[in-house]
Amino acid sequence: MSRQGEATLSPLAALGRVSLGVVNEMGAMLIFLFHAFRLIFSSLGQFAKTVRQIYFIGVKSVIVIALIGLFTGMVMGMQLYFALSMFGADGFLGSGVALSMVRELAPVLTAIMVTGRAGSAMTAEIGVMRISEQIDALETMDINPMGYLVSPKLAASIVSMPLLTAFFNLIAIFGGWLTGVLLLGANAGVYWNRVQSSLDWDDVSGGFVKSLVFAVLVCTVCCFEGYFTHTRKGGVGPEGVSQSTTRAVVTSCVLILISDYVLTSLLW
């Protein structure tokens, strides 16, 4: 092929390589998820490990979720009040806060916070275990590292994320009440009535479906990146672990937002 022809095709070849790489990685992640899921119920001992992970992923995230939920609700209450009162529709403040939280913001922000707090820790923990031969040690002790390390985290994420999302919803709606009603003077009765009347079961269950999908996504991506730290370029040292952690957080956040759009389109 002529040099001009090669120059024309090289960006296409690069695009093809990247696409194949992405598809390959997605396939590997799916297989990884399948194995992790299969081993959740492999032994009775998994229950105790899962409870420990629920404490780490769920309980230890409560304070940060409360803070983020409160301030997100307060900002939402304030902005919506100003916008709605321009049209004399400040009575719909409760509906606006509740629907935006339950359908969108609570699942997404909870997932992003869990990624930042627990997901990054999962990647770093598993990555360090990989480079310090702890995962090899588990294999030589005939302990399946996937079952020991990844499955309890997956189960704990699936349990914790919807609960944290529910908690976020409560705190955020309370935050909207604080600014909209207490600070800016909207009617409290109308606010709570609108919250109650505008939300139906589809909104709540849709939010929970999202949080379940995000839980699986975040846990799979973060554990996968840590588990295969050593296969990346320069992944055998601490720098490799830090790169894997960064990649895990960025990939998780991007996937959360993309899947949020897809799920919103499908659910409502």
Partner: peptide, 8 residues
């Protein structure tokens, strides 16, 4: 293992 590889 070389450094013991104990679980931290």
């Amino acid at each position: 293992f070389q450094d013991g590889a104990l679980l931290g």
